[in-house]
């Protein structure tokens, strides 16, 4: 079984980001880390590897040089190889552009499964996995909250999380793209042996221009902080005064 896991690097803390000079993306003054949803994706791939012998797990990430550190984390967490698709600039990348690059890379790899997080925590799009599947003309299921047995390497049972605490259950023919929801598993800490192995392992870099030349289909033209137009009342004073004021409000509304 060949598995490709798509990982995105995002700022570690929303508090360290600022709007860039042109107002069309952000700058980050702090550290970066792996998108949390992609940690679940990677863990799911590792679990499949534990169930099925001879499974090869490869991680891929699109972005500037800094994303190599996230690929190394993916190696520590159990990926056997890492590929960096290099896009030099720090800018907004349209999901179509990211998907086109990964699909172009994945085409020759004949992966049985491509797994990604359901969403990127930064741009919150929920698009790249579905677009990769559409470009490669393979199946796709999003928001996967449970994965069952993989039958003879030809299909996989999954449950998709939908609204109101319900799930849709289905068998998906392989090859396929799955985007996983947080909570599908509990990601484990990397083992010491994997950390040591990952330390010196080479990460392959491919220039984005060598994979796909095209344009994104949408452009981010401005970025701003939302106006938190508080319609509500900020309680004043120290914590005891605030607590007293709150009790009074709850009492007046007959809530206590």
């Amino acid at each position: 079984m060949r598995i490709l896991v798509c990982v995105k690097q995002v700022p570690d803390n929303e508090g360290t980001i600022d709007i860039n000079d042109t107002g069309t993306w952000i700058t980050c003054g702090g550290a970066f880390r792996m998108n949390r949803f992609d940690e679940f994706a990677l863990e799911e791939a590792v679990r499949i590897g534990e169930e099925i012998p001879d499974t090869g797990i490869e991680a891929v990430s699109v972005g500037p040089g800094r994303v190599v550190s996230t690929l190394r984390k993916a190696l520590e967490r159990g990926a056997a190889a890492g590929t960096h698709i290099l896009v030099e600039e720090e800018r907004y990348a349209s999901p179509f552009e990211t998907a086109s690059l990964i699909a172009s890379y994945a085409e020759a790899g004949h992966y049985d499964l491509i797994i990604a997080g359901v969403m990127a925590e930064d741009d919150m799009h929920c698009q790249v996995g579905q677009m990769i599947a559409a470009i490669l003309k393979i199946r796709c299921a999003t928001s996967v909250i449970h994965r069952g047995t993989i039958r003879n390497g030809t299909s996989v049972y999954i449950e998709r999380e939908i609204e109101e605490g319900q799930r849709l259950c289905m068998e998906v023919a392989l090859p396929a793209v799955l985007t996983v929801q947080s909570g599908i598993n509990r990601p484990r800490y990397p083992s010491l042996s994997n950390i040591l192995r990952a330390k010196d392992q080479k990460i392959r870099t491919i220039d984005a221009n060598d994979l796909w030349k095209g344009d994104g289909r949408d452009r981010l033209i401005s970025m701003r902080r939302p106006e938190v137009s508080a319609k509500g009342i900020f309680l004043e004073g120290g914590k005891d005064e605030k607590a007293r004021a709150l009790i009074k409000i709850l009492h007046e509304r007959a809530l206590i």
Binding site: P95, F96, H125, C126, Q127, A134, S143, I162, L168, R217
Partner: peptide, 20 residues
């Protein structure tokens, strides 16, 4: 869960932009 599952694939097929 239906809409975001469906929209990006439709956009690829239609040659359309997708904004979610």
């Amino acid at each position: 869960a239906m809409g975001f599952d469906l929209a990006p694939g439709l956009a690829v097929d239609l040659g359309a932009a997708c904004i979610t």
